[in-house]
Amino acid sequence: MKRRTLLASVAIGLGLALGPAAMAQDSGAGLEKVKACFIYVGPIGDGGWTFQHHQGALALKEEFGDRVEIAWQESVPEGADAERSITQFALQGCNIIFTTSFGFMDPTNTVAAQFPDVKFEHATGYKREHPNVSTYDARFYEGRAVMGTIAGHMTKSGKIGYIGSYPIPEVIQGINSSFLHARKVNPEVTLSVVWAYTWFDPAKEADAAKALIDQGVDVILQHTDSTAPLAEAAKTPGVIGFGQASDMAAYKPAPRVSSIIDNWAPYYIKRVGALLDGSYEQSAAWEGIAGGEVEIGEITEAVPPEVKAAAEKVRDDIAAGTYHPFTGPLNKQDGTPWLAEGETADDGTLAGMNFYVEGITGEIPKQ
């Protein structure tokens, strides 16, 4: 299984509105102290996904001090190894365990059945097979709309590149959102996708960036976790990119001209705080810019003021709820209608997105 996968069949599983029976499962009296534990799929120094989750974990100590103890295991492979690591944490007295990769979903539910008094929180999954399992995710496609706006304005070649991890709905959402918003401001834009088939492999990510640059791409977006694409972009004057998952500020003011930042701290503080005060309930969260889980990093001086203003307007309109990144009229890649004028995509469709929008060339690989 691949991290952060959302399948077409999970519209109900996402549980964007949990039933009363599920929501009624709470922790009862508050705890005097909480041991919060984290299972990471990558190293905390990856500069992206795992790094940002760990920043959220550290925020718990800042918020609650001695009332919270944190522990973590990094670079845990998905599958049987994950089940062993989660079990070890449950045996070590963790009150709540955050498993931060999609491939940890089934192991999380398996272990949760054995430890009903421990709370389990799974990032980006949809299975809540037991009352002590909750899920959480972020609307990354909202941030892609902002980055796509900048990309469409900034490209001189008219060629934008995208490094995809795996051909799964979450990644496809980002590709479509980026392209749509680049095309809105620059109708001549084309988009090329290179699939790295990894979440974190700097060598593969660098090769993907180089391949795109060799094709004449001068703006690169990525849905992989390392800074390698930015490092590769820095070798070619005029090529720009964006921070992914974390700010990747070391590459400012260019090639990194802005970033999508996954801010997990508010969610972790909210959930651990609920254990401390006794208000904890099973939940399914999918927040975005408005909820503070998707942040837009500094737009640097490498971006013209009018482009910065246009990008910030997209960000602010999404935050205000007055704009949805997928608003019709929109067609699918084959020209069939998808969204009518003014219609917006529902969460179920987004959660199972398995198609490109009209204008993107190439096929989505079969896994």
Rank of each mutant, 00 (worst) to 15 (best):
A285G: 00
G273C: 06
T108Q: 04
W72G: 00
N132V: 06
T344E: 02
K2T: 02
S134T: 05
G19C: 12
V303L: 10
G328Q: 13
L275G: 00
I150Q: 01
A203F: 04
W199K: 10
D214L: 06
Y141C: 04
W49V: 11
D225W: 10
D346E: 00
E363F: 14
G161F: 03
E142W: 13
Q55M: 15
E295G: 10
I360D: 00
T110Q: 12
V272L: 05
A57Y: 03
G103D: 04
Q55H: 14
Y356N: 13
G28A: 11
T149G: 07
R144G: 00
G42Q: 09
K235Y: 01
V10E: 12
T327K: 15
A82P: 08
G93Y: 07
K61V: 12
Y267H: 12
A17E: 15
R256I: 03
H223Y: 14
E129G: 04
A284C: 11
G216P: 12
Y136Q: 07
V294Y: 03
Y323R: 15
W49T: 11
I213S: 05
M105C: 10
T124G: 02
I296M: 13
Y126T: 06
T108R: 03
G103T: 05
F51G: 00
K184A: 15
Y40W: 05
F51Q: 04
V185N: 07
T99R: 04
E232N: 01
R67C: 00
Y323M: 14
G342D: 10
G174N: 14
K2C: 04
Y40M: 07
D26T: 12
I360K: 05
D225E: 13
A209G: 01
T190I: 04
K2D: 05
T5G: 06
E170D: 09
G28C: 09
Q92I: 10
L276F: 04
F120T: 03
G15M: 06
T149H: 04
S177Y: 09
T149K: 09
G164H: 06
E295C: 12
K235D: 02
L180S: 08
V303G: 06
Y197A: 08
K366E: 11
G216C: 14
Q55R: 15
V76E: 09
M23P: 01
M23A: 04
Q244A: 14
K252L: 10
G335V: 12
I289D: 07
G47A: 05
G297D: 13
E121A: 10
G158E: 01
T135L: 01
A250R: 15
